[in-house]
Design a protein around this nucleic acid. Structure first.
Lengths: 146, 146, 146, 146
DNA sequence: GTGGTCTAGACCACC
DNA sequence: GTGGTCTAGACCACT
């Protein structure tokens, strides 16, 4: 759990969003996916507060309605809960994963794998493609409603 | 060229498509991405013929217009060339990549990496998330053309 | 920019389209050509907003999809940029051309040339044909993109 | 009239075709238009023989059926007449136009006009656009069936 | 048979 | 309101 204290605006958000415009993925969906990813990696835990709509808008240049919609989807899926005047809070418990240390280790292994691939002549596109081919149906491709 | 033999209708298509409905990615975009991925992995080469629109339709249950749209995007990007009455052909040369053997080796390494991750307690979602976090802006997220 | 004043809905579109049904040229292509012509004549400049799809539909009696297709081609060629909820905007800078006054002068010369041709017995068809023969490959006959 | 002699294959064709692939205009339509233009300029006259389908195919890389179709359209419009074993011959009389000398003079004037336009900074595209704007509905944009 | 264009209409995402 | 995607189906052009 990530220091779940009280007081409305007292701490900085537990997650920072980013939108990739070029991708075909709708913006609201990118936000939803990022929350879910952070959850499954333990970067976000029950009780954590999502940044307010305004904070997100200030950060990523997006329409407030779009952020709001993403939060609604997450709430409908039972992942977060909006509390009037306080903000939006994670409610679902993160599924057990590897320890943060182990995850970092795995991430390092993945990076060095990519480095090897690049040294053997593969472009960034090719490496991406190889990953896509190896894991044909990644988890982020599911529908909403868990 | 990959399969330069036989008469026009004698050889099977150089690529087979698949659509993931649940993903937020538009179907036509998935087709486009799959062609580009195949190209960057050397699975598709200049001169190869893409399956006809009708063949794709028969295979993946999608509207002909949607397939056509994907092919149009690829043509606008200079990746393929459509010739009425003949079909749609790859024109762009694949950038040099690793040898097929080396690619298979790398793919095997990637699979065993994922296996290790899973054994250390990570769910498929978590593994996907870890990959997404490690490679923030994969190549397939670019916009078309300039 | 041509008309940089006023609020969003206050100014009239920077270009008006017209479709010639009888010509063999596809409608979407006529729209594309008209935008590019206006651009090369300086009638349209970076920042200008094209009429919305619905506006065009109301003006020329054409299917929204066809207009959309034209705008898509222009976007793929980097000429315009579509922003959902806002409209479609010219992005490419017009190449330097003659001054508007000079262009009007040249146009006047061209008109009087045609008048002379007509007085010497040539029909409108013949004059058209003479122009076509004199400029065999006009710019509007190019393919899109690379 | 352009030396209308006899004997099937004895003289060279009175017109040479060219196809612009990039243009949206269908190939058959380009052939039709070229015949009509030549006619209205007096380059083709009643009795002249069009090149045979084979000759056209050898010249412009096009499917025989497409050439055939163009000739059929012209025949349906009463412009030409196919005579079995002999070829296709122009039947319609050319409308009166300017004398060849006068036409050449006018063409020269047009060329020098374009030269002036170019010297004042206009690109080839801009010149094309200016012509298109000045003559909004050129004759070649009519439907078939005179 | 191939690709290409157009219409019609529904539904989604974004501002 | 804006643009974007998809379906359905008709018709055309080309080989």
């Amino acid at each position: 759990m990530n220091t779940p204290l009280n007081g409305p605006a007292a701490r900085e958000p537990a997650i920072r969003f980013h939108i990739t415009r070029g991708s075909g993925l709708p913006a609201y969906r990118q936000l939803v996916d990022q929350v879910r990813q952070a959850l499954s990696l333990g970067l976000l835990a029950a009780g954590d507060r999502l940044p307010s709509v305004r904070e997100v808008v200030a950060e990523v240049t997006i329409n407030p309605n779009t952020v709001h919609r993403a939060y609604q989807v997450l709430e409908a899926d039972g992942v977060v809960e909006a509390r009037a005047g306080l903000g939006t809070f994670v409610t679902s418990v993160a599924p057990p994963s590897a320890t943060p240390e182990h995850q970092m280790e795995l991430q390092e292994d993945l990076r060095s794998w990519a480095e090897r691939a690049r040294r053997s002549g593969m472009s960034a596109e090719a490496i991406s493609a190889l990953i896509a081919v190896t894991f044909p149906n990644p988890a982020h491709q599911r529908q909403s409603s868990e």
